Simulated assay, not measured.
Amino acid sequence: MKFRMIAGFAIFFIIYSLLVLYIGWNGWIWLDSAGSPMLPAPLYGAIVFILAFSYLLGRAKFRMPIFTIIGSYWFGILQYALLLLPPANLAGYILIETGLPSSKAIFWTGLFVLAAFSAIFVYGTFNAYSPVVRKYSITIPKQAGGRKKLKIAMASDMHFGNLSGIAHLRRLVEKANGIKPDIILLPGDIIEDDPEPFIRKKMGEVIKELSAPLGVYGVLGNHEYYGRAIPEFVREMDKSGIQILQDEVVEIDESFFLAGRKDKTDKFRQKLNDLLATADPSMPIIMMDHQPAEVSIAAKNGVDLLLCGHTHRGQMAPNHYITRKLFEIDWGYLRKGDMHTIVSSGFGFWGPPLRLGSRSEIIEIDVMFAEEAEPDYNKNEGAIL
């Protein structure tokens, strides 16, 4: 097993290094074609190396946030370089074959790639830092005490830390409170791994401004596990008035049950039927589960509304084609039997602050409760308003 892990890492390192070499080589020949003063090859190589491995350097023992930030942007550069450079190389080759001098062919195709990168980063940054509110309206055919309706504000995958910072957090507070929700729900990945940047920037003082009569609740996402500081994170959330549910079910206002699962990353999380054993199935059951990996299981166990995140809807196109294959629902609304499922593309981002084919969002859900069971209610409800 250990040998396989080492071999797998070695193969990955070799392939990754070859891809980095390919990108670096393209940059080198374009600079030459542009007539720019050439850096010494060792210095140019060192710059490319730092770019390519800065994310790992930022997570080393002596952490420096600047490397994490550079590395995050590098992921965006890497993805779109691998999408743009092969057709650019082909176009350059065709132009040279038609008689255009090689220096001009390389310069103009390279300039086109730079223009494409500029457009991607400007548009992607706007989508990442300009969240929208998406509205859903559903009906749960169960009595909820004396409550006839419930307004939920939901935001997932904030990834608060170095790049999803205090300004983006203030956007969350403003938009979530502006919905005037009865309850605010945060289905995981509230922070980006390590809670240290969140604490250092005193973001807890801002997030505590989230306000709803029935409270603010959250669950753990995979990134809270990656940070290996869950107790510290939970304490920080407690100080901010946010209750993190870890395989827990609470009754809210004698009207409905709210369940919060540990993330699927936790191999020891409770089975869903055991978790919901204390919930009265005659009352509405709303559940947060960070990853939409067990939608069918939730439907079979009497959950009425399942709220998830995690997928980011791929975050950067065309990654949404991958998430669409990985999950039964990777974004939006799905009716599964009598259960409503809503998966958010997330409020923040992982890696680069870029979104293409997705948008940072907050979810507003208007829930209507029926006085009596209505088994034949509209199967098409739940569409975005």
Rank of each mutant, 00 (worst) to 15 (best):
A144M: 08
L19R: 07
F126K: 14
F67E: 03
F198G: 03
I11Y: 11
I183T: 06
R147Y: 04
A212Y: 06
V249E: 09
D253M: 01
G35D: 03
S240V: 08
S36T: 14
L95N: 01
N127M: 10
G35P: 02
E236D: 02
S102D: 10
V122N: 05
S102Q: 15
Y93Q: 09
F13S: 15
M203L: 15
V122H: 07
E174S: 14
M154R: 00
L84W: 01
P318K: 08
T311V: 07
D263E: 15
A116C: 13
D253E: 06
V173S: 03
Y226D: 05
S102H: 07
I14H: 06
L172V: 05
E254I: 01
Q291V: 01
V20A: 11
D338C: 10
P87F: 03
S156R: 00
E209C: 08
Y22E: 06
G124D: 14
M288Y: 07
P37S: 15
K148M: 13
I329S: 14
G221S: 02
I50T: 11
F107S: 15
L305R: 00
F347S: 00
I166S: 15
P141E: 07
G99R: 07
I94F: 13
S72F: 08
N378C: 04
Y333W: 14
R147M: 08
